[in-house]
């Protein structure tokens, strides 16, 4: 599960543990061709790098480009290797280490199903309101909430839902973009 804090100026947002392991958000612009995700994922598993979360979607159908956001962790040397190895893949256009390059915004979307009746049901709705989560599906016994935000916010919401009948969670993983006017 992703645990990337709300975007903040560089150095603050990404935890550095005592053993020198850093967490980085890396954006990868790739040619949208068959097997490109397998190449990226295979590179991480083959070389023993860590994937905390990863998502991919086409962002420019005309140019045929997709963007992969991957959250990974490792020593600074490993992070450098990961970027160099990604850059080396033939269908990769650009690799950008958002964590290193400056302030950025990271967001995640989650769909959360809660089942229950009576007071618990009302309480879940009340909390959803506080978290600005929307109801996207409802039956007499259940809600599906949609929530976006930093992963921590979603973690907190899920925690609060647990005693209220939480039955299912689906999360996208972080998508991120640099603050300011410059593109990737």
């Amino acid at each position: 599960m992703c645990r990337v804090r709300e975007a903040a100026p560089r150095g603050k947002d990404d935890q550095v543990s005592e053993d020198g392991i850093e967490r980085h958000i890396i954006a990868v612009l790739v040619e949208n061709e068959a097997g490109v995700l397998a190449r990226v994922v295979g590179l991480f598993s083959g070389r023993g790098y860590n994937i905390e979360c990863l998502n991919v979607a086409e962002i420019d159908p005309e140019a045929g480009q997709s963007r992969i956001t991957v959250v990974t962790s490792g020593t600074p040397q490993i992070i450098e290797q990961i970027k160099a190895q990604l850059t080396r893949l033939v269908p990769v256009h650009k690799v950008s280490d958002l964590t290193q390059e400056g302030p950025h915004v990271g967001r995640e979307l989650a769909l959360i199903k809660v089942r229950g009746r009576g007071e618990k049901r009302v309480e879940s709705l009340r909390i959803a309101d506080i978290f600005r989560a929307g109801v996207v599906d409802s039956t007499s016994r259940s809600f599906v909430f949609e929530i976006t935000g930093a992963p921590e916010k979603i973690d907190a919401f899920i925690q609060l839902m647990a005693p209220l009948g939480l039955v299912d969670v689906s999360r996208t993983g972080v998508v991120a973009i640099a603050r300011g006017e410059k593109p990737i």
Binding site: Q77, E80, Q81, A84, Q85, T87, R88
Partner: peptide, 11 residues
């Protein structure tokens, strides 16, 4: 020529 060779084993 391969940037991934740099600092891979030896800094």
């Amino acid at each position: 020529i391969d940037p991934s060779s740099i600092n891979k084993n030896v800094m």
